[in-house]
Design a protein around this nucleic acid. Structure first.
Lengths: 221, 221
DNA sequence: TTATTGTTCAAACGTTCGTTTGATTTTAAG
DNA sequence: CTTAAAATCAAACGAACGTTTGAACAATAA
């Protein structure tokens, strides 16, 4: 019966260490192979826990995905909300948005990939869950473009086009990274993300300027 | 195996009806549920063929995906090549690009979704296959931005950022459609895609203008 | 006709899937 | 110490997975 039984984990709360390990393993594996291609045994092995712990803590494999998407989305929503609050001038808003969003996506790139890849998938188990997240995302789109200096009376269809476009600009780099890494010699260091912020900001600024010219007050379509 | 000797390639050849039905079922199901979440029995049922026909004609489930991605990509490459050939003036090139790409993505929206969703996924079976497709895609990026009026000496890292951004602008609408349909009242009719072409063209034009200002001859980074 | 080749199919292959069970150990409080 | 709840585990569950088999069927040519 011996001595030790000392969980020398450096984790904050050792009580949640296994639960957190499962989540971290899910983020890693889902982003690499996709949700459906990952088995619970893969997750358990990566997290160094027993298989049954996944159902015990998250109610099943889908529960792990839900937790990942839910926390990622709520953090991103909170970020957007803060930017909207402190920015009144459109150009300033775009600058603040990109300055905040790029580091956020850099920090949560794997969650962003999971989010993007699982978005159009109808998995019948978490479909209604995702539908709710998406509706919230679209309200964010409205907020963003109301502050970006685009015409107030701009019809919903226009926002439904510009919203996904701008959102995809922000995370397309992470979606393509496995490709761009080798071919364009892109390395994920601070210097690169400085350039990245600059380029994305330039693209969005130019796009908004041109959109104002084409779809401004005159109502030309 | 199953290498057929085809003398005639007419569309209504009943000899290919089952093979084509399998491919069509794969496009439908993969785009709705994702490759890994679709079983061979689902494909067989959707196509009204026997399960073994999938291995017989395509060598397995992965073979169906390979065929879908391969033909989609070669068609898209051909489209880009033609546009590059007939356009010398940058603004004209962008206009031609969008005018051709939007109907193409509309026509092949399900293949585009499959392409986008499977892109970052490392499935160990078709990884090398996709890697080859991706390298070709990046060469398309080079062509596109060499003709878009961006500085010739533009460094590769810049193309590695702008390329994915512009590409994602083109297909983000289809990725988000399950969401935008309900919330923004978007219907996939000719009138909408007329607006869509217009908006995408405006975004890209404005972005290129601003990129030329910021990253032009002066070499400012 | 017979021989040959390409299709089609029901059935079965072995493997892996996500989840649950039931017992055991650990934890924390009375 | 006693006791009850929480956590952990090996094992097993039935279902679904992708693929293959071997025979039957269809079409063509000699």
């Amino acid at each position: 019966m011996a001595e030790r039984t000392m969980p020398d984990k450096t984790e904050a709360d050792p009580r949640d260490s296994k639960k957190d390990a499962i989540l971290e393993a899910g983020i890693k594996l889902f982003s690499e192979k996709g949700f459906a291609a990952v088995g619970v045994r893969d997750i358990a092995k990566e997290a160094n826990v027993n298989i049954s712990m996944i159902s015990y803590y998250y109610g099943g494999k889908s529960g792990v995905l839900k937790e990942i998407l839910s926390s990622f989305f709520s953090e991103y929503s909170e970020l957007i909300r803060k930017i909207v609050d402190i920015s009144d001038d459109p150009p300033v808003f775009i600058s603040n948005l990109v300055d905040a969003a790029v580091p956020f996506f850099r920090e949560h790139s794997r969650q962003a990939i999971i989010f993007a890849v699982e978005m159009p998938v109808d998995s019948s188990d978490i479909t209604e869950f995702k539908a709710e997240k998406m509706r919230n995302l679209l309200n964010l789109f409205r907020k963003v473009f109301a502050h970006a200096g685009l015409p107030e009376g701009m019809e919903d269809r226009l926002i439904g086009i510009i919203g996904p476009s701008f959102f995809s600009i922000l995370f397309s780099h992470f979606l393509f990274y496995p490709v761009t890494e080798q071919t364009f010699g892109i390395r994920k260091n601070d210097e690169f993300y400085e350039l990245y912020r600059n380029v994305v900001k330039t693209i969005m600024t130019g796009a908004v300027k041109e959109l104002q010219l084409s779809f401004g007050r005159t109502g030309i379509s």
